[in-house]
Design a protein around this nucleic acid. Sequence first.
DNA 1: TCCTTATGTACAA
DNA 2: TGTACCTAAGGAC
Length: 293
Amino acid sequence: MPEGHTIHRLAADHHERFAGGPVRVSSPQGKFSDSAALLDGRTLTGVDAHGKHLFLGFDGHDFDRHSFDGPGWVHIHLGLFGKLGFGTTPAPPPTDTVRLRLVNDAHYADLRGPTTCALITEPEKRAIHDRLGPDPLRTGEDGERAWQRISRSRVTVAALLMDQKVVAGIGNVYRAEVLFRHGIDPYRLGKDLTRQEWDAIWSDLGELMREGVRNNRIDTVRPEHLPEAMGRPPRVDDHGGEVYVYRRARQACHICGTGIRTADLAARNLFWCPVCQKGTSSRAAAASGPSRD
DNA sequence: TCCTTATGTACAA
DNA sequence: TGTACCTAAGGAC
């Protein structure tokens, strides 16, 4: 379940369990074995998260001087399928899909199926930050840089929100939900978004995602639209949280009852309510687009 | 047991 | 725009 909130939560979880002491590092699957050997027994000194990128920092002294000049960071990106699981020691025998295992006296963590798990240097880490847009969950960031790109763009708001160079950490769920919450047609062009709308979206993302970090799941439904408040049955789904439109194609909108629509956009499923998210402009794409209902 | 799907990204053409 | 990559769960048989 990896959108930005998951990654920031994982950073905190690693910090709580492993920071400040030596960690046994291994790669039962083998694909990270050489780096794991370099890291094994070192102290985990800090963690960082930017968008969907997770960084685990290790004590940099005495790294193999020919290949690595520490401090070193394990750069992890879960991609679509990656998962991190925690447990208390003793750790069970790892299965052959565990790319990375961390163990200390009390805890273990298993990483499976990541799109990226690599040992990188400080400059390499900086380069990753440089190509990412502002992250609503990173302290001290604001949406100004994002607005500079969005307000000049002829790309749809739906695509811009998923572009990690524009905003970091938004995925398919937050994208769909935040556009619904602000009544914005996903096919609206970036340049047609108002400053006021963007400011509201940015601050809403910060609040929604902070709650996502706390609860470790995505909930976006306002109190007055919750199942208990409306007398509708609660959502029963594998991803848990209460949402307005994500994966609710053809079901009734919680607010107006219209069937939620879905369409392909850049190989991802887009979901929206055609009534609550009426466009103020650029409706042509939505009206004639390849919408499936 | 097989098939589909998934909260993602990078690269080729 | 298509395709490759990484894994596991759920549903259809």
